[in-house]
Every structure is written in C-alpha cells, then in structure tokens.
C-alpha cells in the first residue's frame, strides 16, 4: 500500500439512471466528478438542491454503482468492474443518513449496539465504548427508551454514535442535522466536533447550509448543478478547536462565506 496515497480518491465519477420505460438513459446527474480525501480530514460538501448530493454519497457508500469513473480506497479500487456492490465496504465506510434510520423496535442502547451485534464484535469492551459514547452525547439515562420516545435531537445523537461505535475509518453524513431547530443543531455540531477531535476519523459531510459547511470543515467542496461536478475547493483555515456559537465573528468567516455563496448561487 502506498502510504502517501489519499485515503479516498474519486476519479471521473459519473451517474445516470435508466429512464422509466427502461429503454433509454436519463441525462447525467453527476459527471466527471473528481476529488480526494486525506486520512483524518473533515470535508464538507455543499451544493444547490437537486445536485445529486445523496446520489454521490450512495455511490461512495457502495449502495449504488457509478455509471462511470472509479472510487479508490487506500489506493485500491473499491470494486472490480461488474462485481457486486458491498454496502459499507466491509464496515470501512459508515453512513449517517438524513433520517435517523433507528430501528423503531429496538431501545436506544440496542440500536447503538446493532452494528457491533451484526459484525459479531459485541463484547464487554465494545459495550463499555458504547456507554462512553452515550454519555459523551448526553444520552445516558435514555438507554431503555424506544426511538419514538426520544426527541429529534436525541435520535440524531443515537444515530451518530451508532456509526461511531464501530469505528469505521470513513464516515459519510448526509445533511444529518437538516431537520433540527437552530439550538439543537449547534449542540449536535459541537458534539460531533468534540467526538471528531478525539478520534480524528475521516468525515464527508453534506449540507446545504454554507455556515455549517465552514464551521465544521477543514475543507469545503462546492458542487455545481446537474450534471454535478466540483466547482470549488476551499481550505477552511479557521483554527481548532472552534467556537461554533461565535463562528460568525471569526475574521476569515465572512470572506469564505461570500466566496462560497457566490459559487453556490
């Protein structure tokens, strides 16, 4: 393995879907999209609605096959041509969905433990890790609650640590905080940054909120309208740890915001 190679490389990715009658193909949703991500990097991705952001993440998560182009993980293509998809790339890629996708019939703690259970890694050490994470996001005391008994913010936290608990090297996040109120949202962003700074996972975070993209990321990629490709790659040189509540007051913020907004239109 080449140590200098980026963790994840996306090269000339393209996607289009079969049209409804199954005979022809729709126009390209994504075309000629390339970027790479270094180990431990927090990359935020922003783009106009309908830019195929979820489609991009689905391809990265191996739940959908690209129509063209290649994805490489640690220098190796994730999939031989024509081979079957392996969702989550053998638990190397975690995915935090837009909805919390908690299993409604499992209690909070059982939801968090579900990946460990599925991977056959459930032992005392992993249980302890789950409990630590629960505590870190303030879910202790709610272990035995069912998802419908939790608030939206708590469900999001549970979904977040469900992915963190099995420690995948890359975590994809698809507008995870989109549906929350402003206050809860900032709290969750703080939780996320704290956990990330402790573990330094690689995160790809999709959002439609420019301020969020700047506040969280080391780097922000800007997507074009369909056919989607990258039209901006901004390094966010705001020092960490960041104070999210005062992020607007950071001197670099306004400039970055203006540049990115101009690109997003």
């Amino acid at each position: 393995m080449n140590a200098a190679a980026p963790l994840l490389e996306i090269d000339g990715l393209g996607k289009r879907f079969p049209s409804r009658d199954g005979r022809s193909m729709s126009p390209w949703v994504i075309q000629n999209l390339s970027f790479s991500v270094k180990d431990g990097e927090f990359v935020t991705i922003i783009g106009p609605s309908g830019a195929g952001k979820s489609t991009l993440l689905n391809m990265l998560a191996q739940t959908d096959a690209p129509s063209e182009g290649e994805i490489r993980f640690r220098g190796k293509p994730v999939r031989e041509a024509g081979a079957r998809l392996s969702p989550g790339l053998d638990c190397q890629i975690g995915y935090v969905f837009q909805d919390d996708t908690l299993l409604p019939w499992r209690t909070t703690i059982d939801n968090v433990l579900f990946p460990l259970e599925a991977q056959g890694r459930l032992d005392d050490a992993s249980r302890a890790r789950a409990e630590t994470l629960m505590k870190a996001v303030g879910l202790n005391g709610f272990e035995r609650y069912y998802p419908h008994e939790l608030s939206g913010g708590m469900r999001k936290r549970a979904a977040l640590i469900r992915t963190l608990v099995y420690d995948p090297p890359i975590i994809l996040m698809d507008e995870p905080f989109g549906a929350l109120d402003a206050q809860t949202r900032v709290q969750l962003q703080e939780d996320l940054l704290r956990l990330w700074e402790a573990g330094r996972k690689t995160i790809l975070f999709i959002t439609h909120d420019i301020a969020e993209a700047i506040a969280l990321g080391d780097r922000t990629l800007v997507l074009s309208r369909a056919p989607t490709h990258i039209i901006g790659d901004h390094s966010i040189d705001i020092p960490r740890p960041r104070n999210l509540r005062d992020i607007y007051a950071v001197p670099q913020f306004a400039g970055l915001y203006e540049t990115i907004r101009a690109q997003v239109q």
Binding site: A61, T63, P87, G88, D90, C91, I93, G94, Y95, F97, D99, T101, L103, F114, P115, A118, Q119, R162, T163, Y166
Partner: peptide, 11 residues
C-alpha cells in the same frame, strides 16, 4: 432505508 442501513453496518 433501514435495509440499506443494516447492510452498511455489516448485517
């Protein structure tokens, strides 16, 4: 989505 999630986490 629950099916996709379960597959991703290795079920």
């Amino acid at each position: 989505k629950l099916i996709v999630m379960a597959k991703i986490v290795g079920a």
